[in-house]
């Protein structure tokens, strides 16, 4: 039983690694700062949550589990503030976002 739960935990962690890689691919594929922040936030939220969940399953009922929950809460509190600071700094320093359909850049400019 414990063995099975630990295996499910490892599966969650592998899924988290997959999401992180997807996030990294997104950062490379998306066209500008703002769209890239969206891709990176997959790693911040999805991957981090799955990773914590996987480690929780592997840790079982132990003091480490409480610490993992605290770490997860901390990530959920800080990462949006950091992403907002980043996006706000880019916007404040005059980077214009690409809007509309990137394939027809001239059409939707506002």
């Amino acid at each position: 039983m414990l063995e099975a739960i630990a295996w499910i935990g490892s599966a969650f962690i592998i899924a988290a690694v997959g999401l992180s890689i997807a996030g990294a691919v997104g950062v490379l594929r998306f066209p500008d700062v703002y769209t890239r922040i969206h891709a990176a936030s997959i790693t911040d939220t999805g991957a981090a949550s799955l990773m914590t969940l996987g480690m929780l399953l592997m840790a079982g009922l132990s003091p480490a589990a409480i610490k993992l929950c605290i770490v997860w809460l901390f990530i959920m509190l800080t990462s949006p503030a950091a992403a907002h600071a980043l996006a706000g700094a880019a916007f404040g320093s005059g980077h214009r976002p690409i809007l509309g359909d990137p394939r027809r850049p001239s059409e939707d400019e506002t």
């Binding site: 509190l77 503030a81 700094a89």
Partner: peptide, 16 residues
């Protein structure tokens, strides 16, 4: 100073 006046950052800082 980072993004002075944004409630997001000041709330996060006060909390953290």
């Amino acid at each position: 100073r980072i993004s002075a006046g944004s409630p997001v950052l000041s709330v996060a800082a006060r909390l953290l």
